[in-house]
Computed example of a mutant assay.
Amino acid sequence: MHNHQHDIKLSKQRFTLVTLLNLAITLAEIIGGLLSGSLALLSDAFHNFGDSFAIILSYSAQLIAGQKRSPSQTYGYKRAEILAALLNSLFLVVMSVFLSFAALKRLGHPETIDGPVMLTVAIIGLLANLISALLLASSSKHNLNIKATYLHILSDALSSLAVIGVGLVLTFIPADWLDPLLTILVSGYIIWEAWPIIKKTLIILMEAAPDLDYAAIKADILQIPNVTSIHHIHAWMIDEHDIIFSAHINLSNCQLSQAEVIYSQIERLLQTKYHISHTTIQAEYQRGLNEDLFDSKNPY
């Protein structure tokens, strides 16, 4: 099971440094884009500005998610990070679509690009983006929220690398159509990378069932002494790590003290084998004995 104690959170120092780096890149690329006439450089500036927004949103969500559970939020505030990941990814997609349309218009009417200016600013942007990516890399492995922010930074590093290549070409060859073409290609890549995060966050927010082997869970629980049946189960995710599971089980006519032992066995089984964080069991004797694993008649 994933151990949350090993999660590397985005520290205040890293947050501040990455935000300042991205704001500096944004300013440099806006000036460079206006001076050189490069749409790719301006699009990269918008991406970097979006990164600054994403980092602030990501860090704020992380602080909210760390708050303790309360009577009004009995499962805590972990969904704040899922919402932040969704918003960051959607922002990337909308921005990429907007820039792609602008690039398509530019393809029909290419403008002269100042290759050396474009090249210089892109190199500065690449170095700053690589530093930011390194600062976020370890934290992105176990956290959808930070992963979405890391994707922002990584996409900009790729964009800066591509702009460098185009800048080199334009320094020696007047191929101004390369600039809008690059914008379209990078925007397409960003959308491709953002979609899985959008899909996963929506699945979590819709409380869709996690990918569990329910037949195997049923078989394992039925192996526990005094358990005669299991039915009416529910499973959902609080975030990308925490799975919640509830079920009704039928027991033989045993004492309450024995039922508690069975509860503990089921909880241990589900936690160690299926990585389920929280389990709620309702014990019954004959009620629901012949019901299906999933109760289609009762929505809850």
Rank of each mutant, 00 (worst) to 15 (best):
H2T: 09
H4S: 11
Q5V: 11
D7A: 12
K12H: 15
L17W: 11
V18L: 02
V18D: 01
L20C: 06
L20T: 02
I25P: 05
L27Y: 11
I31L: 14
G32E: 07
G33Q: 01
L35V: 14
A40T: 08
L41M: 07
L41V: 11
A45W: 04
N48T: 05
F49D: 01
D51E: 05
D51H: 05
F53K: 05
A54S: 14
I56R: 04
Q62M: 10
A65L: 10
G66R: 12
Q67W: 10
R69D: 14
S70G: 03
P71F: 06
S72C: 12
T74D: 08
Y75G: 12
Y77N: 13
E81V: 10
I82D: 02
L83G: 06
A84C: 06
L87Y: 12
F91K: 00
L92H: 00
V97S: 00
S100W: 12
S100A: 13
A102E: 15
L107P: 00
H109Q: 12
E111W: 04
I113M: 03
P116E: 09
P116H: 09
P116L: 03
L119K: 04
I124Q: 02
I124H: 07
I124K: 07
G125A: 04
S132D: 01
S132L: 06
A133M: 07
L136T: 02
A148Q: 00
T149G: 09
A162I: 12
I164M: 10
V166F: 03
G167M: 01
W177D: 00
I184T: 00
V186R: 00
G188I: 02
G188F: 07
I191L: 11
I203K: 15
I204V: 13
Y214V: 03
I217H: 01
D220G: 08
I221M: 15
I224Q: 06
P225V: 13
V227M: 08
T228Y: 12
S229H: 14
S229E: 11
H231A: 14
H232L: 00
W236T: 14
I243Q: 01
H248C: 05
H248P: 11
N250E: 05
N253P: 01
Q255K: 15
A259T: 13
V261Y: 09
V261K: 10
Y263W: 10
I266G: 05
K273R: 13
T279L: 03
T280M: 15
Q282V: 06
R287Q: 14
G288C: 09
L289E: 13
S296D: 12
N298E: 11
P299K: 07
